[in-house]
Design a protein around this nucleic acid. Structure first.
Lengths: 332, 332
DNA sequence: TTGTAGGCGTTATCAG
DNA sequence: CTGATAACGCCTACAA
């Protein structure tokens, strides 16, 4: 592999001059030509490891997410990647599988690899970003804020999303609306449940009992399990709010298998139904602009990398209720 | 940030001894204790950049895929990540968006970051892995082989998958079966189309005209567009093979929107339908074990990293026809 | 504008 | 077993 010395030798200049050309610093036109030609003929590529060691900062940013198989996060990832790549950074994706230890390991690596910044969707409510911050690295939280860390964060208005979904069912005439949200330890799940609760307390003469709010794994299996239980209840509800896209898929699976239509048993979903092959008539969906979250988080990160100081900013992105009209095209 | 010198100073030994402890080389028990304690109190983490520069090899492997939003590839990614992480490697995911230039850029980076290896699902039939191979780096192709490169590859039996899907429709009684496969430039798409063609030539007294094989973008939109066109044909077919999971979703969307059931218009899908909320009764699906592909590719990569020599191995993984019986649980 | 030289943090070699 | 030292490839004062 050619080094900067090889290029210098071939061009008949010093390594410093080569470095200057590579980094766009002033060099005589003649030498610039020589260096460029030499680099070309040697097929020279700067060694990024050495550069990073010297500069103490790489041109890589990491995106740490808990579930790479959830379209919510892959769409988010696209947003971050688009923004960062446009600014010349490479984006590497790290999947923690919801495992706090893996997340910590990736943050460690980001630190010791001298990465320029990290966008993290924390697996739990605690996330060890302090070491990164102490070293002056850019860190942005996305989807879920990190309590106690004064950093930029980009989140959904989860309470509002919960309200929108619940209101859609209420207005469709349902009066005993349950909610399957995510784990009690995940703030997005809790907030969506709070939105559901708020709205019913405002509208309903008899607010729902606490047993109408159930927690599920934020995956298809979780939705299936809780939906099945709800249906087998002695006094079962007449509608349900699904706390995220995958829970929605699971719940819909159960309803469909039992031949229950959305008119018979109401269901609204917080988050876009991924890859739906059926129109899902009558199912209100609260669209969450995940790609926008990603681009926003990416933009904040770039600003921080560029040296922006100041207290952590908090950007809240609203969900948007999609009409549950028949014939609406699903999927993408 | 503490360095190896700080640890050495605190422990009262030389940096070399610290390095030895870190790398599990023989050191007197007394010194080992001292070093471990010193490292702990200083909260020391080795600088991976410096280590990589010195060792000329990092403990990172890259996985380069063309579409992070396609569950086919995210599932594959899980497989690779599981295997590699178990062996102590960090996996970084690079999404090329099907863009050959981006792919080349990522391969460049893998090279100049001294990454230990790369698993690549090539965007096109050419992929510039030569520089990596020349530097002795481990490279494994997955999903699509790289013509002209003598490397390990893990692929689906795409011809076989095409045959399975087509046979299922034939046996269900359909006799004018079209095929929507992927772009003509993607070998997996071509092979699946060949499987369709082969089978019909064997079974059908009048093999299908070439216009029964159409190429689509391997995404939902591609499936929608081609399916719509097929249905509007003057002499439309009575069934269709969808060339991948997303084309299947798109085609199913169109059929469902028009109220055509799988009994009226046959459809079989090559690849698992992602996140299906409906049972999809009567739709034969050729299951592709993507996760296994990933773990297999990861294992081959690790062997190469460990120095395994020899010509490129080619592992072909068969698809498996899932019965299209009513009531089958869909999604995961 | 250009070259020299030191150092980024680690590991490997080579004496001791 | 241990320590001093050079080297990985690059960038950047500093001096010319």
């Amino acid at each position: 592999m050619a080094t900067i010395y090889d290029v210098a030798a071939l061009a008949g200049v010093s390594p410093a001059t080569v470095s200057r050309v590579l980094n766009g610093r002033p060099v005589s036109p003649a030498n610039e030509r020589l260096v460029i030609d030499a680099a070309q003929t040697l097929n020279y590529t700067p060694n990024r490891v050495a550069r990073t060691l010297r500069r103490q900062l790489s041109e890589v940013v990491a995106l740490v997410i808990p579930d790479i198989e959830n379209p919510f996060f892959t769409s988010l990832a696209r947003g971050v990647a688009d923004t960062a790549q446009q600014a010349g950074y490479s984006v590497v994706l790290c999947n923690t599988d919801g495992d706090v230890a893996k997340e910590e390991s990736f943050l460690d690596i980001a630190l010791s690899e001298n990465m320029a910044g990290v966008v993290v969707a924390p697996a739990a409510s605690s996330s060890v970003v302090q070491p990164l911050l102490e070293r002056g690295r850019a860190v942005v939280a996305v989807d879920r804020p990190i309590p106690g860390a004064d950093i930029d964060s980009v989140v959904i208005d989860n309470v509002g999303a919960g309200r929108l979904a619940t209101r859609a069912l209420w207005e469709a005439g349902f009066r005993d609306i349950a909610c399957i949200t995510g784990p009690a330890g995940i703030v997005t799940a809790v907030d969506r449940g709070r939105g559901w609760e708020q709205l019913l307390e405002e509208l309903s003469p008899a607010p729902p009992g606490p047993h109408r709010l159930v927690h599920a794994d934020f995956r298809v299996g979780g939705g299936r399990a809780r939906m099945t239980e709800l249906l087998e209840l002695e006094n079962r509800p007449d509608a349900v709010v699904a706390g995220n896209n995958l829970v929605g898929v699971g719940a819909l699976q159960v309803l469909n298998e039992r031949g229950l239509t959305p008119a018979e048993f109401g269901i609204a979903v917080i988050g876009d139904l991924p890859f739906s092959a059926h129109p899902e008539d009558g199912v209100p969906v609260v669209h969450l602009p995940t790609r926008t979250m990603g681009t926003t988080a990416g933009a904040l990160l770039l600003e921080r990398i560029d040296g922006h100081q100041g207290p952590g900013r908090r950007i809240v992105i609203p969900g948007e209720l999609l009409a549950a009209s028949p014939g609406r095209a699903a999927g993408r």
